[in-house]
Design a protein around this nucleic acid. Structure first.
Lengths: 130, 130
DNA sequence: ACTTAAAGACTACAAATGTAATCGTAAGAG
DNA sequence: CTCTTACGATTACATTTGTAGTCTTTAAGT
């Protein structure tokens, strides 16, 4: 069996396309182009190229619907973000989450809601680990 | 005046070199090579190339010491990590820190120390914002 | 003084990335 | 039925990145 943990290595531009599909899938390339249009100003050919590259990388799947393809992600957003986060925290903060939150809080403003959510997380952790 | 907020765009390999210099600077290229040797197996020419690229990008400075150069970072690790974190959280978590911590906690194990540090952060925030 | 080794400068080169344009084909407009 | 057009496939091309190799110069060893 092939290694299921291979890292597709998604580029920045590719991520934006993938993200558009996480917003809702399956979707045609035109639909993806339309979604991205609000944020990026990419030529539709560009988006098509990126879709193709993601398919080749095994990140997207598709099925034909007449002439068009319906694309959909093969990896869950959550899985992806978790892996990337672990990676990021590991490289920049030696794997320690608190210093990263500290830096973030110090650079951005935390809302009360952010803090409440963090508190909830902590409380849950403490319940699970007492 | 030129925009002081330009983003140097440091590649992964470059980051490792920069990180070695954050560990202590100024340092000669051989010293940097030596430091990296424990982790990476890079040819010294490779490290030299990366040092040169970082200098060209304005990320490192250097001063000559006889034949050798003494390199040092021009940006603080903290500033860099803060900016990158903000960026990362913005792209992957719509700027919300709590979901990122949640994902991380769910994928890695949080130590009691991590949690204590987070609690301290929160407490400080609450003092500042009551 | 001569030779050599090591430092930095310059060159190399394939793969990945950003950003499309062109080609061939088939579905839809008339 | 024919012409246009919208798809996907293929090709393009400059830049960045990873990973060194070669060239030039000079300090250091003998």
């Amino acid at each position: 069996m092939t290694d299921a943990s291979e890292k597709p290595d998604i580029s920045n531009a590719e991520f934006d396309v993938l993200d558009a599909l996480w917003e809702g899938s399956p979707a045609t390339s035109s639909e993806v182009v339309a979604r991205l249009n609000s944020r990026k100003s990419w030529h539709d050919k560009t988006v098509k190229t990126l879709l193709g590259r993601l398919v080749k990388k095994g990140v997207l799947g598709f099925e034909k619907q007449q002439r068009q393809y319906l694309y959909y992600p093969l990896i869950a957003r959550e899985d992806y973000t978790k892996k990337e986060t672990t990676n990021f925290v590991s490289r920049l903060f030696k794997g320690k989450i608190a210093p990263m939150v500290a830096g973030f809080a110090n650079n951005n403003s935390l809302s009360k809601q952010d803090v409440d959510e963090l508190k909830a997380l902590i409380q849950k952790w403490e319940e699970d680990n007492d």
